[in-house]
Design a protein around this nucleic acid. Structure first.
Lengths: 108, 108
DNA sequence: ACTTTCCGTTAGTTTATACTTACCGTAAGT
DNA sequence: ACTTACGGTAAGTATAAACTAACGGAAAGT
């Protein structure tokens, strides 16, 4: 049920900006905050939420703390979405079929 | 940029419940609301948001309105996540390597 | 025509959360 | 030891959004 936290986590636009910035590779907080429309403490809070959702990990490197994307949470989200995907396609086929027969049975 | 709306949409637990209920196939609002911990108007509002995000579609069937999963929005979300997935894996490999060298250079 | 059923919409309230400012701890340089 | 850079935490505020209750409107049966 971790995908719930991951989804809620990625629902925030600013948090997505931080997360997408990490695609370029591991980066310290200051670099991540640079260029974002919010303050550095805000970025720290976002990173805490991201870490709590299993989407990022962190490593201490001297005086600075480097964050990186954790494939764990992302994988769980992907699996959930994939399972959803197949069911959705099948459901959609049934929908098309039902629509057909429904149109046919309408006011005979 | 529609995946943003889809993510924000799926961040709500109740909305996910409604959405997951649709995996069983197209269903009218009353059936969807049955068993959920919220009122029927709440479900209607959730369905509106889901539809606005391109995650569901609806069809009028007599006096009732049948909702179904729309693969459109789900596909866009999946593509975004997939693109993310590949980048994240590569970034993670770099992270491992960086961690190795960092550990090696630590306080020689 | 009247009633019933099903559903969307509005108004209003309450709760959650994203943000800033200020403060404190920690690691490295001088 | 002192200073500086970096970053997490606390307190407080403001905005968003999820929910209920009440209303309105359309389709089908009697």
């Amino acid at each position: 049920m971790t995908y719930g936290k991951a989804l809620q986590c990625l629902s925030d636009p600013t948090r997505r900006l931080v997360f997408e910035k990490l695609r370029a590779g591991p980066q310290p907080v200051g670099v991540l905050a640079r260029g974002l429309p919010v303050s550095r403490p805000a970025v720290s809070q976002h990173l805490k939420v991201l870490k709590d959702a299993g989407l990022v990990g962190d490593r201490s490197e001297g005086v600075r703390r480097v964050y990186y994307i954790d494939p764990e949470g992302l994988g769980e989200l992907r699996r959930w979405l994939d399972q959803f995907w197949t069911d959705a396609l099948e459901s959609f086929k049934n929908e098309i079929a039902a629509n057909h027969t429904a149109q046919g049975r309408k006011k005979p």
